[in-house]
């Protein structure tokens, strides 16, 4: 016998009133898993399966190829330069926004997000127009014998632009939330500004900073659009890993393309794992600063 609606336990009744039926609930959860499997697990799996299709020997031959080695080197170099630059930029921007009031502050906040909202190809093109052999700054560059477009400085420039928001975005809300009292306390206790930064500010934002750097690095190594335009895709010279994948794929070297793709995919997995751990620590920091 079923009880009438009003006879049932009131708490259970209230819960039922805001809850979808069991069927809807289970269908939605199942759908999420199907979508994840189709669009996330399947592609990742395919990358590794395809990479290993012709055996380990073919896999390592593809990776040992001089062009691939050059691409790995280029990717590492670009990331090694772009990530620290953006860590510094991001820290400076977050500091300015979280600590000071100044005119056009809102505009600055919006500008920081610009790289997220503009297509990377457009970024690449505008750098070519500025620094290319017929660009606005061409006479100056020729005079000092500098090459930016179709060379590594262009890659670093484009990557730095595209990955600029990651560190700043992570730090701004964190620093705003933490406020200035800890830093003021350090100053009243006699710390000079540098000591205050190293002993109080940096430990407070440590996890957010590392988290931002990690995301920035993942994007720097995986960036395709902007880098594709400014690099000129000179094989063995200015290609990075994502570009090399495309080059090989275009030349119908599927196993080669997937071998390199597997490096990038592996990188993504490592990033994901570290990210999960960091997110956990970072969230604890945010919670602590809210609690006081």
């Amino acid at each position: 016998m079923t009880k009438s609606f009003l006879q049932r336990d009131p708490i259970q009744r209230d819960r039922d009133m805001v809850r979808e039926s069991r069927l809807v609930e289970r269908t939605l959860i199942a759908l999420v898993f199907v979508i994840l499997a189709l669009f996330f697990f399947a592609p990742m799996l395919v990358v590794f399966v395809e990479a290993g299709r012709k055996g380990l020997l073919a896999y390592f031959t593809a990776i040992a190829d001089p062009e691939t080695k050059s691409a790995i080197k280029m990717t590492l170099m670009v990331a090694t330069l772009a990530v620290p630059i953006n860590a510094l930029f991001g820290l400076a921007a977050a500091w300015a926004i979280a600590r000071f009031e100044f005119p056009l502050k809102n505009l600055l906040v919006t500008l920081i997000d610009l790289p997220f909202s503009v297509s990377p190809v457009v970024v690449g093109l505008s750098f070519v127009v500025l620094f290319g052999s017929r660009g606005y700054f061409a006479p100056l560059l020729v005079q000092y014998n500098l090459q930016i477009i179709f060379a590594w400085p262009g890659l670093v420039l484009a990557t730095t632009f595209v990955t600029f928001p990651f560190v700043a975005r992570e730090l701004i809300p964190l620093m705003q939330q933490q406020g200035v009292e800890d830093e003021e306390a350090a100053l009243t206790l006699g710390a000079c500004p540098l000591k205050m930064f190293l002993t109080v500010t940096l430990p407070n934002i440590k996890w957010g900073l590392i988290y931002g750097i990690l995301l920035c690095n993942a994007r720097a190594m995986g960036e395709f659009g902007a880098v594709a335009v400014v690099s000129g895709r000179i094989r063995g010279m200015t290609t990075t890993l994502p570009l090399q994948v495309e080059v090989l794929y275009g030349g119908f070297d599927l196993s080669g393309a997937f071998a390199i793709a597997s490096i990038l995919a592996g990188l993504a997995l490592v990033t994901l794992i570290i990210k999960t751990v960091l997110e956990w620590r970072h969230a604890a920091d945010l919670a602590a600063s809210q609690r006081h």
């Binding site: 009292e181 306390a185 407070n204």
Partner: peptide, 13 residues
């Protein structure tokens, strides 16, 4: 000066 803040501002690390 010795300054004690309203929310104490202890260094939590």
């Amino acid at each position: 000066v010795g300054f004690v803040f309203q929310s104490y501002a202890l260094f939590k690390h």
